[in-house]
Amino acid sequence: MTPATASPALSSPSLSPATPDKRLRIIDRTMRLHGYASHALIETLHAVQEAFGYLEPDLMRYVAGRLKVPLSRVYAVATFYHFFTLKPPGEHTCVLCKGTACYISGTAEIFRKVEEMLGIHAGETTADGKISLMTARCLGACGLAPAGVFDGTVVGNLTLDTVVNKLQAWRSHDADHRESAGDRENRNRCR
């Protein structure tokens, strides 16, 4: 995950030679687009997360150096906004909506059962790295409550059974299953 050019010193923002990692170029492009202005921090962190799936410390360091933003502020912004995650996501991501309409329609119960089943809490990934469980404040799909997002696809009118089946399918999936780049991209976008 970590780019080979990790940890460029704060003082030398030029310390990013052409790296083979395409993802790093996406981040560079975002910063360039905003003229390396410090106010592009949030936009850049979005780009980092979209490219890498999470905010890796060395990348935060890299962004801090390029945008001339204190390290502490990068960390502050990365943890203030709940959209950002500092932990690598699992192979699959299950987001359950905890908006009002979904709550009224019983997501709390589904959520409890899912936590129990996976043995993890919201924001965590199962030990085998298979499934990440997240909550969303509101997906804006209240008409379809309870709703959730499974690997980037919004699914409405959830029941405990549909969720459990979906998770079971992910779990039992053979290890040789490799998700396509498109899947990953899609997933990151919707998380």
């Binding site: 202005a37 410090s38 106010h39 592009a40 921090l41 949030i42 936009e43 962190l45 979005h46 933003v69 502020r73 502050a76 912004v77 203030f80 906004y81 709940h82 959209f83 950002f84 404040r137």
Partner: peptide, 25 residues
Amino acid sequence: LRLGAGAFVCGEETALIASIEGRLG
């Protein structure tokens, strides 16, 4: 376009401005 990043408080005007400026909302 500026993307929010999951903070309800950014609906508050001064927080929203801070967030557009790339700061904590």
